[in-house]
């Protein structure tokens, strides 16, 4: 494969300028190189942003954590600041393989905008903000508004992700993440369910659910979230909402699974939240 030229920017402003000229930002390349090899994308050159200080680092902020777009999954998993975000760690630990987690970044996972993006599921649950820099201004938008569809984002030409700001959830959230497929690693989810559930006096006080690979983007089934409130986390109580969740998803059939299977499994996984009651 002939790689496009890789340019190393002097600083963030330079990176923005180069991106504006059509350069494609590169850090780990775990998704990008696959696309280049397929010819799905033919940028004139690549902009290696992996060493820009503004894109690096994982810091605690007022009420949250800010993660540089070029932070790798392994860096995020081992950063003390993310100890307060177990749902993020649960999800990132399932990405690819050790090699991919060492190279790949959460910023890349967001910009790749795959409905199967394991990193996106916790970001949807936590209401993360995507901080974008561009030639004109910096802006910040919720991840749900940033991701528009499979591989499509709100990034304008010349813009790149600088960081992600993740608000800390209220105390007491039970985290849940489960990814479904035919093997234990190096797996693109056929369906996934992430959840944050707060339980009080044996009943759900608040529930957030996010599903991957069952719609054009990661999906928050808000009606089911609301319907969970007040219910106990028992199999029987959850089973009453199984069909509602199966109808909330909008899956397709592809080589990995049928739409029908994805629908069934989405509903079934809801029952698995009963494991949170004991854990």
């Amino acid at each position: 494969m002939d790689l496009p030229e890789i340019v190393r920017p002097r600083d963030l402003a330079d990176a923005v300028r180069l991106t504006g000229e059509g350069g494609k930002p590169l850090v780990g390349g775990t998704d990008l190189f696959v696309r280049l090899r397929k010819g799905a994308e033919r940028p004139p050159f690549l902009v290696y942003v992996g060493e820009l200080p503004e894109l690096r680092g994982i810091h605690e902020t007022e009420g949250g954590v800010e993660i540089g777009a070029a932070a790798t999954h392994v860096e995020i998993l081992s950063a003390p600041a993310t100890a307060q975000l177990p749902i993020l760690r649960l999800a990132l630990a399932t990405i690819g393989s050790p090699a991919l987690r060492h190279m790949g970044t959460l910023g890349g996972n967001v910009v790749n905008a795959s409905p199967a993006g394991d990193g996106l599921v916790p970001l949807y649950l936590l209401g993360a903000q995507v901080n974008v820099v561009g030639p004109a201004r910096e802006r910040s938008l919720p991840v749900e508004e940033f991701v528009l569809g499979p591989g499509r984002t709100a990034l304008q030409p010349g813009e790149l992700i600088r960081s992600l700001t993740i608000p800390l959830p209220r105390d007491g959230a039970h985290p849940y993440f489960r990814k479904v497929g035919r093997r234990q690693a190096l797996l693109i989810a056929v369906a996934s369910l992430g959840a944050l559930v707060w339980v009080e006096d044996g009943a759900v006080r608040e529930a957030r659910l996010a599903l991957g690979s069952v719609a054009p983007t990661v999906l928050r089934p808000r009606e089911v979230e609301r319907a969970l409130v007040g219910r106990p986390l028992t199999v029987e109580a959850l089973a009453e909402l199984r069909d509602a969740l199966s109808s909330a998803v909008r899956p397709i059939s592809d080589l990995r699974a049928s739409a029908d299977y994805r629908r069934r499994v989405s509903g079934n996984l809801l029952l698995d939240l009963s494991s949170l009651a004991s854990g």
Partner: peptide, 9 residues
């Protein structure tokens, strides 16, 4: 898409 077992499988 052609999945062979990994060490974890």
């Amino acid at each position: 898409s052609y999945h062979i077992p990994t060490a974890r499988d």
